[in-house]
Design a protein around this nucleic acid. Structure first.
Lengths: 344, 344
DNA sequence: CTGAAAGCGCTAACAC
DNA sequence: GTGTTAGCGCTTTCAG
C-alpha cells in the first residue's frame, strides 16, 4: 500500500472537512455563523452566507444529522415496528406487512419523514416499545399489529402520545388504533358462506392475535363453526393446514381463512388433494391483498383498505406529533365476491 | 384539566428519570458508573451493577440512543435508499421495491440492524447520497436501483466503502453492485420468443434506467425489435401502453416487457381489446414477482432471485463495514416458462 | 472499582 | 451580523 498516510500533513489540502468547526476555520468565521448560514437563516449576511454555502459545496461538507438531532431533539424519522409475538417466524417479507408497509412508506416519505423499520421479537426484548419510544431516534412510532402485546402497548400509550397502532379496536382502550372492524368482517364472511349454501364451516387461524380472535367471534355470531388454529408464518402454515385438512370432519364444506395467505395455502393443498373449489369446498379469505384478485380462481375475501388505513395512520400520527389527542379509526371491511365461493 | 402541573415540584416522586444523570443521582453514583453498569461491563462491582439495573428497570429508564450513537459513532442502522430519478412518480409500494425490500428487511433485522428507508427524488436533492452517507445516521447504505444516478453513485463510492447497490453491472465500474445479468436476461427473453414462433417483437420499457437499457440491448442481440418507451410508475404506465398498443404495427405478435408489472398491464389491456394471449400475442415479463405465478394465465418471465440477491447485498455490506473491499455480484437470470408464451 | 472531565458535532441563547 | 458559550445525553479515557 506504499507509505502510510499522514493525515496530519499540513500540506494535505485534501484533508476532509467534516465538521462545522473545520468549515468555520477555512471560512474564517465561527461555527455559529456556519451553522446559521447552512441553515439558510436570514440573520446572517447574504454575502457570508453565500460564501459559506459555496465552500460547503466545494468541500462536499454535509452536517452531521445525528449531532443536530441530539441538539434539537427532533429527528424527522418515524419508527415502524412489527412485533412478532406469537408467530415469531413470520417474516417482514410477508405480503400482508409489505402491503401495509408500502402504503405507509409512501405516505411518510412523501411527507418528508424517513421511516425506520424494526422487526421485534417481544420475548427476547420485553420492553421493546419503551426502548423505541425513549430512544430519541424517532419522533413518533407506528406499530403494525398488536400481536399479543395489547397490554404493553396500552401501558406505553399512557405516557407517550405520538403512537399509532394498526390492529383491533377494543372498547375503552387507551391506545390509538387504526384498523378494520374485525367482528363485522368475520360476520360478513360467515353470512356469505351460509347464504351460498355452506352446511358446515371451518375457521383456520390462530387466535393469539386479537384481530383474528375477533374475526372468529364475529363469524361465530352467525354460524357454529369448527376452529383450527393455523399459524400465520408461511413456513408453519402449510403443515398446519395439511394436518387440519387431513383430520377434519368430512362434512365441512366451507372454510373461513383468517388471512388471504392462509386461504391461498388452503386452495393449493385442496387442489393437490383433488378437491374442487368452490364446488366441493368454498373458501373465503381476509385482507384482499393485491394477489387475491390475480390468482386463479380469484379469491373471495373480506377486504381491508390498506391505502386508506395507512393514510389515516400517518395523518393521525402527525396530529399527535402536534399535540392533539386523537381518537381511533375503525374501518368497515367489505365482502368481495370472486371465484372461490359459489354465487347466492 | 385542573391546576397546572408543576413539574419542578420536589415532592413529585413521579418525575421521570430520563438521563443517566438522573439515575446516577438516585443511585448515589456517577454517570460513568451508571453507563458502565447498564452496558453490563465487568469493570463495575456486581452489587452496584445489579442495583443500578434494578433501579433502571423500576423507573423505566432507557438510555438515549441518539446520544450514545453520537458518542460512539455507530448507529446499528442501515439506510436503504430508493432513488426515483426518472419515473419519479413510482411509489415505494411498487411490488418490485416491496419484494426486494421485504427480503432486505428480513436479512437486516435478523442480523440486528434497523433499516432506515428513504425515498429519493434526485432532482430535488442533487447530493442525496452524500447527505446520507455523511449524515452520521447510519453505518452503511444500500441503494435500490441505479435509476439515472450511475455517475453520482460511482463518485460517492470512491470515498465511502459501506455502500452496496442493486442494479446493473458495467465493466470497470467502481461501485459495488448486486444484480442480474440484464444483457443475458434480455437475450433469454428474445430467444424464447423467437423459438416459439414470434415474427415481430416489441420491447416495452423506459431505457433511462440502465438495467432496462441492458435488457433491451440483450434482446436486440437476438432479434430486431421495435422499442416503445414505457414508464415504470403505475399511474403513467397504463396510458403509455394504451398508446403503444393502439399505434403499433399490427404485425407485432410478441412483447418483451421490461418488468412483470408492465407485462401484467399489457395483458389486462390486450384482454380488453379482445386479443388472445398467448394465441395472438405472446408476452414475457422480467422479475418474477410473487404475483407472476399467481395470475392467470401465469406469466412467463425472466426470473431474478431477490431472496438470494438481498442476502448477498447484506453479506457484502457487512464485510464492507468490516473494512473489506468486496467485488460485485452478477447473478444469472433464468427463463420461467408459463402461460403467456406458446410452447416451443 | 469509581469519579471527574473531556468531548461526539451541532444549535441557540446571549453578548457585543 | 457575528462570536462565545453552554449544553443535547452519552461514553471513555485518565486518575485515584
Amino acid at each position: 500500500m506504499g507509505p502510510e498516510l499522514k493525515t496530519d500533513d499540513p500540506t494535505d489540502a485534501k484533508r476532509k472537512v467534516r465538521t462545522l468547526a473545520d468549515l468555520a476555520k477555512i471560512a474564517g468565521v465561527s461555527t455559529g455563523t456556519v451553522s446559521r448560514a447552512l441553515a439558510g437563516k436570514e440573520l446572517v449576511n447574504q454575502k457570508t452566507r453565500d460564501h459559506i454555502q459555496a465552500l460547503a459545496r466545494e468541500h462536499g461538507f454535509r452536517p452531521n444529522q445525528m449531532a443536530s438531532n441530539l441538539r434539537t431533539q427532533r429527528t424527522g424519522v418515524i419508527r415502524v415496528a412489527i412485533p412478532l409475538g406469537h408467530d415469531r417466524r413470520q417474516h417482514i417479507s410477508d405480503p400482508f406487512f409489505m402491503t401495509l408497509l408500502g402504503y405507509l412508506a409512501d405516505e411518510l416519505t412523501e411527507g418528508g419523514y424517513d421511516l425506520m423499520l424494526s422487526r421485534v421479537i417481544p420475548d427476547q426484548d420485553p420492553d421493546w416499545l419503551d426502548r423505541m419510544t425513549n430512544s430519541g431516534m424517532s419522533d413518533g412510532t407506528i406499530v403494525i399489529g398488536q400481536s399479543d402485546q395489547f397490554e404493553l402497548i396500552e401501558h406505553v400509550a399512557q405516557e407517550y402520545l405520538p403512537l399509532v397502532t394498526w390492529g383491533n379496536y377494543r372498547k375503552g382502550q387507551t391506545h390509538c388504533v387504526v384498523g378494520s372492524d374485525n367482528l363485522l368482517g368475520g360476520r360478513l364472511a360467515a353470512e356469505k358462506l351460509v347464504a351460498s349454501g355452506a352446511k358446515k364451516i371451518a375457521f383456520f387461524g390462530d387466535t393469539m392475535g386479537i384481530e383474528i380472535a375477533s374475526r372468529l367471534e364475529g363469524a361465530r355470531n352467525i354460524a357454529e363453526l369448527v376452529h383450527f388454529p393455523t399459524h400465520l408464518a408461511v413456513d408453519e402454515m402449510d403443515t398446519d393446514i395439511a394436518r387440519n385438512l387431513a383430520s377434519m370432519d368430512p362434512a365441512i364444506d366451507a372454510i373461513i381463512a383468517a388471512s388471504d395467505l392462509i386461504a391461498m395455502a388452503c386452495i393449493r393443498q385442496l387442489r393437490e388433494r383433488g378437491v374442487d373449489v368452490p364446488g366441493a369446498m368454498q373458501i373465503i379469505g381476509f385482507d384482499d391483498l393485491p394477489s387475491a384478485s390475480e390468482m386463479s380462481p380469484p379469491l373471495t375475501t373480506i377486504k381491508q383498505d390498506f391505502a386508506v388505513g395507512a393514510a389515516a395512520m400517518v395523518d393521525i400520527l402527525k396530529r399527535r406529533l402536534a399535540g392533539e389527542k386523537t381518537g381511533s379509526v375503525v374501518m368497515p371491511p367489505r365482502l368481495v365476491e370472486r371465484g372461490t365461493t359459489r354465487p347466492g
